[in-house]
Design a protein around this nucleic acid. Structure first.
Lengths: 108, 108
DNA sequence: CAAAACGGTAAGCCATGACTAACCATTAGC
DNA sequence: GCTAATGGTTAGTCATGGCTTACCGTTTTG
């Protein structure tokens, strides 16, 4: 589970940036090449390339070559890791909240 | 849905920071006062207070007074918004992936 | 093989934001 | 009412990281 949570942390870190979120959202609607992504964003191709590297290192996207074009697409595993992280903390939070509510109750 | 996704974005933005994640993880294991949080973190109380404000604005935590102490606890709604955001993009990604796989198939 | 298309990389600039120190406000307890 | 406890706020510093420009490598195409 340690490596899972590490993946989740990397994913959270990555999606904290607005531009990376924009890239991620675009890719979730379909795979795309670097230049095509950059054409629809207010930053240069170089910036997009750098962001894609971060997203890839975080396990959120995968890359495949098609001639000179690099096609990027969402890697569902990255989302999965985040979901697990969120769910774990959600369960914790609900337990803690329940305990809190019970304690409140017994005080009355 | 717009306001939901806005909440999700704020949550993602917040949890991009390591210190805020540490605070969030601690709170998911139980409510805590500002001073107690700071005592277990490598930053000052002031920094923790600032982070808590961000987390609160993002809908990830709630606050309640107990004497002079401010008790912070996880707000499950924040996590919920993030889950929805993730799930929406997950579905998109899976659809896109399926379409991609089908296209690959028809090429053979 | 030459030129074009496509992207990754390096160096450098600059803005954002995380942090601390100092101060102020509120509540509790003697 | 005075003191301690608790924490929010402000001003200012500094590092992180996002962006651009320029350059280089690879693959395709004529």
């Amino acid at each position: 589970m340690a490596y899972r949570s590490k993946a989740a942390v990397a994913a959270l870190e990555s999606l904290g940036d607005p531009t990376r979120r924009a890239i991620f959202e675009r890719l979730s609607r379909g795979a795309s090449a670097v230049g095509d992504l950059a054409a629809n964003l207010p930053v240069t191709r170089a910036a997009v390339s750098q962001h894609l590297r971060v997203l890839k290192d975080a396990g959120l996207v995968t890359q495949s070559a098609q001639g000179t074009r690099r096609i990027y697409r969402i890697d569902p595993r990255g989302i999965g890791a985040m979901r697990e992280w969120l769910d774990a903390h959600w369960v914790n939070a609900l337990d803690a909240f329940k305990a809190f509510a019970d304690a409140e109750e017994t005080l009355k």
